[in-house]
């Protein structure tokens, strides 16, 4: 009796430690592999309701994580959401399925500015989801000195009050920007120049978070951060003390797209989903929850004036913003620099 009870308790413990998998039914499905905090539940539910297609969602926190799981096979995804430089490398490696434009009539709603961009010159493989920038959020209630660029964030006076994206390529590109080097010039010599800067910067960071850096701000754990503009826009919406600054040293833009991986089992469903989110009335739902720059011109017309006035979502002025390009092997060197510096950091 005693043994049985003990075994029962252990089993209970083991059972809760294991994730439970629901029984997949033979039903029309869409396996969506997307960024965390990027696709509103409302949109997924709306799509499922309209089409009767069951949507399985899996999340990732960086392009690299997505690539890892996508290339490892095992799971079959129908729709992924890579950023521009990852789209470029996936096209190069022939890992994407060309889209059938006839199946996506709502493509006409896109702002021509976001169609056929350098990473997908023919617009054959990707449809932009949201665009945005990476910039600095300042809690002006706490930080009284003017913050204009990366150097001000890491000037030493805000030690352990900083959150940054947990993304090696981003972090290295900021250090290079302070040297006037563009984000795609990731040569070994340039990386060597970035190292001393990063070894100065990284110990000042309190939190690395790509999923939801806004949380650290809202919890009062940090006063400064280098984050996605959408996160900044949400913070500004909550409290105007959180201002967004595009770094003076040079900012860059990202475009996240929807793509169908090669061999996706449900390509038609993926195209149906793309067409669905391109509807202006659906697209505004995305903007409402995740206020990045919406590439859907028809949807932008439907936005409320205060949404369009959000400086983090729709920065004013005609900005010259660079985008990341595929840098091939250098990606490994970049990660090595950041991993080694993080590991080495002694306190």
């Amino acid at each position: 009796m005693k043994t049985i009870r003990f075994v029962l308790a252990l089993t209970l413990l083991a059972a809760t430690a294991l994730p439970s998998y629901g029984q997949a039914k033979k039903k029309s499905v869409l396996n969506l592999f997307c960024w965390s905090e990027y696709v509103p539940q409302e949109v997924i539910d709306g799509f499922a309701k309209e089409t009767g297609i069951k949507v399985n969602v899996e999340n990732y926190a960086s392009n690299e994580e997505m690539l890892s799981k996508l290339l490892a096979g095992g799971s079959k995804y129908d729709l992924v959401q890579p950023s521009e430089y990852t789209v470029e490398s996936l096209i190069k490696a022939e890992k994407l399925e060309p889209l059938t434009a006839e199946n996506i009539p709502n493509l006409k709603n896109l702002d021509p500015k976001f169609a056929k961009m350098p990473h997908d010159p023919e617009g054959k493989y990707s449809v932009p989801w949201m665009a945005g920038t990476v910039g600095i959020v300042v809690n002006t209630a706490k930080v009284k000195t003017p913050i204009t660029g990366y150097k001000d964030v890491f000037d030493g006076t805000h030690k352990r009050r900083i959150v940054v994206l947990n993304d090696s390529r981003e972090i290295v590109s900021w250090a290079l920007a302070t040297l006037g080097i563009g984000p795609n010039d990731m040569t070994p010599e340039n990386l060597d120049k970035a190292k001393p800067i990063l070894s100065e910067w990284l110990p000042q960071v309190k939190v690395y978070d790509s999923d939801s850096p806004k949380t650290a701000f809202l919890n009062g754990d940090v006063d400064l951060g280098i984050v996605w503009s959408g996160e900044a826009a949400i913070l500004w919406k909550k409290d105007k003390k959180f201002t967004y600054v595009l770094p003076a040293e040079g900012a860059h833009q990202f475009i996240d797209s929807l793509c169908v991986p090669k061999g996706a089992p449900n390509k038609e469903n993926a195209e149906k989903f793309i067409n669905y989110i391109l509807k202006p009335e659906v697209s505004v739902l995305i903007s409402k929850e995740f206020p990045y720059t919406n590439p859907n011109a028809e949807a932008v017309k439907l936005l409320k004036p205060e949404q369009r006035a959000n400086p983090a979502s729709y920065p004013s002025g005609d900005l010259k913003l660079e985008t990341f390009k595929d840098i091939g092997k250098a990606a490994k060197d970049i990660d090595k620099v950041v991993t080694d510096l993080k590991g080495r950091k002694a306190r």
Partner: peptide, 11 residues
């Protein structure tokens, strides 16, 4: 660090 190698760094 190990998890990072399999996810972020893809190494």
């Amino acid at each position: 660090v190990i998890q990072n190698q399999f996810m972020q760094a893809r190494d």
